[in-house]
């Protein structure tokens, strides 16, 4: 049994990564909960947001945390437009078509990035990249702590929007009973697109919080996308609290897996959880019967 002094930093690191995973998963779960589609373009859109933050920083010198006021609104607009112009038009009454269209979008976005930016891995340099906080006797990089706080605050804001605003009420109505929602005068197309936009805006926030300690490359999203799916499935599709809890669990599992099994095999824990949950409890830890 390894020393607590090794395990504790791992767990704390896992929690900070997990919070960001949770943020990515939050967008995915909102889109699933309302639109009942799995957005396979989620990872590609995260990658796009990361490039946005990267270029804002390297070309215009915008700090990633200042970019929080720029990137998420832009991502929101992209999400809204995609849903309005492409995704709704693709369904032809079958969910499989939406699945495929988002996969197609993911392929397009990822490979456009590959064409435009090559497969180079890029990082940004901030004055606080290597600063640390001392927490419980272990050192955690400052940006990771900010990311954790940012993720929690965003999740809180999300909760407020969903539970306390008219938009949130419309979104919840649509998730429960689309026909009924239309009958009481909710503009379903608009609300669908708003949900999609909000889900994608989450990625913008995640990108700003992520980049100071992470990197960006055209395929960076792929790693996140399965992790985010796992979290959503683990927490229960469409459940917000589930996404947060799932994110933290997965973050810790990944960190401990990496510690005990090595970097490459460590990820396998995530997928094992994923497959086991899908098979034995497809509604997730906190999900309701779909």
């Amino acid at each position: 049994m390894p020393d607590l002094a090794i395990v504790l930093p791992s767990v704390l690191n896992g929690l900070t990564t997990g919070a960001l995973y949770a943020l990515v998963a939050l967008g995915l779960t909102l889109i699933y909960g309302v639109l009942h589609i799995i957005n396979f373009a989620h990872g590609a859109l995260l990658m796009l947001a990361l490039y946005g933050v990267y270029f804002l920083n390297t070309v215009l010198g915008v700090d990633p945390y200042v970019a929080l006021f720029i990137v998420p609104p832009v991502m929101f607009a992209i999400g809204y437009t995609l849903q309005r112009l492409v995704i709704t038009k693709a369904s032809h009454g079958r969910d499989e078509n939406i699945l495929l269209v988002t996969l197609g979008l993911a392929i397009i976005i990822e490979n456009l990035a590959l064409m435009g930016f090559r497969s180079d891995t890029r990082i940004i340099d901030t004055p606080y990249s290597f600063e640390v906080f001392e927490i419980l006797g272990t050192f955690i990089p400052q940006p990771k702590v900010y990311a954790f706080i940012g993720a929690v605050v965003t999740a809180g804001l999300f909760w407020l929007v969903i539970n306390k605003t008219d938009l949130g009420r419309a979104i919840r109505a649509l998730a429960k009973e689309p026909k009924g929602a239309r009958l009481v005068g909710i503009n379903t197309n608009h609300v669908f697109a708003m949900s999609f936009g909000l889900g994608v805006a989450c990625l913008g926030v995640a990108a700003c919080l992520l980049l100071p300690t992470y990197y960006v490359s055209p395929h960076v999203g792929q790693g996140f996308v399965l992790v985010a799916f796992t979290i959503v499935v683990l927490g229960g599709m469409g459940s917000f609290v589930g996404a947060l809890l799932g994110g933290l669990i997965i973050g810790v599992v990944e960190a401990l897996g990496g510690l005990f099994l090595g970097e490459s095999l460590g990820q396998i824990g995530i997928f094992v959880i994923f497959i086991v949950v899908l098979i034995f409890r497809p509604t997730g830890l906190l999900g309701h019967k779909v």
């Binding site: 492409v86 693709a90 495929l100 269209v101 996969l103 197609g104 979008l105 993911a106 392929i107 397009i108 990822e110 490979n111 456009l112 590959l114 064409m115």
Partner: peptide, 9 residues
């Protein structure tokens, strides 16, 4: 692959 994706959509 970009073309494949566009074709799929």
């Amino acid at each position: 692959l970009v073309l494949y994706g566009i074709l799929l959509v």
